[in-house]
Every structure is written in C-alpha cells, then in structure tokens.
Design a protein around this nucleic acid. Structure first.
Lengths: 239, 239
DNA sequence: ACAAATTTTTAGATATGTCTAAAAATTTGT
DNA sequence: ACAAATTTTTAGACATATCTAAAAATTTGT
C-alpha cells in the first residue's frame, strides 16, 4: 500500500513537471522581462531589476519568482537573483516570437507605424494558439526581423544574432546600413521618421565632432548633424 | 466650504459616469453573455441563464452583476435579473464586432476552418486598440458577415438583421440559399463540411418526411437526407 | 572588519473573481 | 392560498497578483 502511494506521488510529480501549464499573462510578462534583462547580463537577474522593468515593487517580484520557481521556469536561490531554466527560456522566446510577428503584421498590413506597434503587440503576444502563430508566420512570409530590426526567433526558438555595431562607432568617411534601433521609444522613432532614417537606410559618416561626439552624416543626398544620443542607439552594418 | 464639497462630489460622480473604464476580460465576457441571451428574450436576463452560459455559479454572477451595475453597464434590481444599459450594449456590440472581424481574418488569410475560429477569436476580441479594429475592418474590406453567417456590427454598432428563416420551414419543391448556422459547434460545422453544405449553397427541398421531420434535399446535383436537428439549425433565404 | 547603505524577503492588507453552503425571495403546483 | 420547489442573494473562503512596512541578508565604503 505504501509503495503504491509513493508510486502515485512520483507519477503526480512527473506529470506536474511535464504538464502543459497555461501561464497567466502576468507570468508570461515576468519571463519575458527576465529574459530581456539577462540578455545584456552574464549573471543572475536581480529582484530590483525585474521590479523596475515591470514597474512593480520588489516584494511583488519575490512572490512571483517563487511561483515561477515552483513551476521550474526559473532557478532561484534567496537573495541570489534568478535565471531562466531551459523551459522558462523556451516560453520567453516563444512570446517574443509572437510579439515580433504581430509587429510585422501591424506594420505590413494594418498601416501601423513603427512607434505604434508595441502597445498592441504587448496584448496580442499573449493569445494562445499554436496554429495562429504558425499561420501568421507563413502569411507574413517568414520574416526574420521586426519593424525595429530585432530578430524574430524561429519555430524552434533559434534567434539570428543581432548586429552589435552602433553608428557612433563608425569612423569618418565610412558608410553603413541602418539595421535596427536600440531604443524603441516613441520619441526616438518619431525623430528618426523626421530625419528620414529607416531600416536599410545607407548612412555616410561625413565628420565626427570630438567635443560632443556628435556626427555629421549624409543620408539620401541630404546632410544632417546627429547627437551622440542618436548615433549610439542605431545598430548598423558596415558596407 | 460645504458647497464646495458638494461641487467636488458632483464633479467626481460626473467623471466616474463618463470615465473611459478599462474593463477586464471577465467583465467583457459577462456583457457579451448578457447581450446574446437578451437577443432571444424580451425580458430581463436571469442570473442562472448567465451562469449557465459562462459555466460559472449563480453566486459569482450576482457578484459581477453588482459590479457592472455600479459601472452603469447593466440595470439591476435584486431578484429581477438584468438588462444592459445603452452604455453596456455599446460595449457588448463592440466586442462582438471585434470577435467576428477576427473570425473573418482567420478564415480569409490564416487558413482556419469555420470550426476552428471561435476559440482564438474569444481571445483576440479582448485586445484593446481602436486603430487595430478600424484597420482590420479596412484590411478585410468591410465584411458584413462572419464565417458562420452572423452579421458584423459596423463602427457605430449597427447590426444588419439576420435571416430568421430556418431550412426546416422551407416547403417541398422550394429552393433556398444557406445564409448562416444557428449552432456553431464543431460537430455541427464538421457535419456540414462533410455534406458539402456551405454559406451560399443552393439547397433544393425535394421531399419532407412528416414522421420525423427529416427532409431530402439536393445540393450541387447530389441528393441527401438530413434530420430535423440539422435543418432547424440552418438559416436560409428563399429564392 | 564592521557600520551604513542597499537589496531582498516576509508579514499582513487589499482587490478581483471564483466557490460552497445557507438564507431569502420568488415562482409553481395543487 | 400556501406549501414545495426553484431561483437568487448573502456570507465566508480561497487563489492570484498587488501593495506597504518592517525584518533579514547582502554589499559597500572607509
């Protein structure tokens, strides 16, 4: 009888471990936040960092982390921050994939501009349907990058690595192509629209000003001066 | 001082009344349920009817009704059931509009069949963005009916009225066109697929069997016999 | 190294939406 | 009309996700 009980408990734990747990939107947002913070970090993600990212309080983060830890989505040791497990990483990447696919859809077919897509994609990314994601991907013709130049993970979670050269690091007389934006804030994107800077734009660095790190660039025949704040938020590829 | 206080309270009440209250998905689902029940009913909607529709308990419904009532979305008197206010009706229709637009999108562009769309549309309908709905409508070329033949409310909430003739009421030798389905269950829709019955199909009533109310019909040259259960769930238009 | 500052966790509260069980009101049947 | 059946509401719990305030642990600065 006792042996039977243990067997039963083992089966329960196993099914719990493999269970296709439907996550809440909140849980999904935590995973996404942890993923994106740990991208630019080689250590465990701190409670405060997550709290700041999600505009919530550290105590709320601690509670949620415990929950995610019980579901084997994060590795957590008290006071030591968290890291996503493989399982947690897979889910985070899946959500990012959905987010970016929807962004492409909104810009490509629904006339959204690149500064309008984020808020709506934040909602759409939580819709649960494998078929939906697959069909959307097909319909969009398997895009590799979203409207901000960020790579879209494929069905297996593989992510093309992003250009990591900033325009600010390009030397005088050198030409490059705009590959993405580091900052996706509305104000920055609107500035770029105004300056006629788009993904794929060819930029020639005419002159660099040592004093304030600003630069004079040429884009589509027109010259303009951009501050360091701008140039250090543009991913480019040298030609 | 006291006059000032009253003024303040009045302003607060006014702003509460006009406040653009973001509703939760649950609240939206209650409004939708009440709307759809009251369509086939000329009196207040009972607590139990809502509970059954939403697969929840009557006590939960009472709680939610109180909340919706405080937000002026339903008229509620204890033990007397509820009716949507104009404000509530507007929101319900908006959600139904979004639901049906998404269904059209899924079938038209993402290769969903008409029995697969409901579940996903239930999620998509709660995404909040006026621009999204407008642009989707435009992109779909302002469809008037969803894949099940249900009318899509326009931007002002106007709904084309639905055919209310059932195939079961059509007389022998009379021809008609399939306009919609009353039952949208997977099993019914799959049966129709199998029998090659689609929206727009021309159906000829060959013979009616008084004994069990079944009928022999002709569709696209082929003859088949359908039960009353089937014929009473198909909206048609006489030719 | 150890006191101060910071970070993180815990404890206890609040809000939403759900439930069961019991009480109250309404409707039904004879 | 009034007892029985049904419906609806209330009361009290519970789960999720949040917060504030205080306690505990870790990190920092001298």
């Amino acid at each position: 009888m006792s042996k039977n009980l243990f067997l039963q408990i083992e089966i329960m734990s196993l099914s719990l471990y493999f269970m296709k747990t439907e996550l809440s939107q909140t849980e999904e947002n935590y995973l996404k936040a942890i993923f994106s913070i740990s991208l630019s970090l080689n250590k465990a993600v701190s409670t405060n960092a997550i709290a700041e990212k999600l505009k919530t309080k550290a105590s709320s983060v601690t509670d949620m982390i415990k929950k995610l830890s019980e579901k084997n989505l994060v590795d957590y040791k008290k006071y030591q921050g968290v890291l996503l497990t493989e399982k947690g990483k897979k889910i985070a990447v899946k959500i990012i994939r959905k987010h970016r696919l929807w962004e492409v859809f909104l810009v490509k077919y629904l006339d959204f501009s690149w500064d309008e897509v984020h808020e709506v994609a934040e909602q759409l990314e939580h819709v649960k349907s494998t078929k939906l994601t697959q069909e959307l991907d097909r319909y969009l013709e398997y895009p590799t990058h979203d409207p901000h130049g960020d790579p879209i993970p494929d069905e297996n979670g593989k992510i093309a690595h992003h250009s990591d050269t900033m325009l600010s690091s390009i030397k005088e007389k050198q030409a490059c192509i705009v590959m993405g934006v580091k900052d996706s804030s509305t104000s920055f994107l609107k500035y770029l629209d105004n300056a006629n800077i788009k993904l794929g734009s060819v930029v020639n660095v005419i002159e660099k000003v040592a004093f304030d790190d600003s630069m004079r660039i040429e884009i589509q025949g027109a010259q303009l001066s951009i501050s360091h704040q701008i140039s250090k938020n543009l991913f480019v590829k040298k030609i």
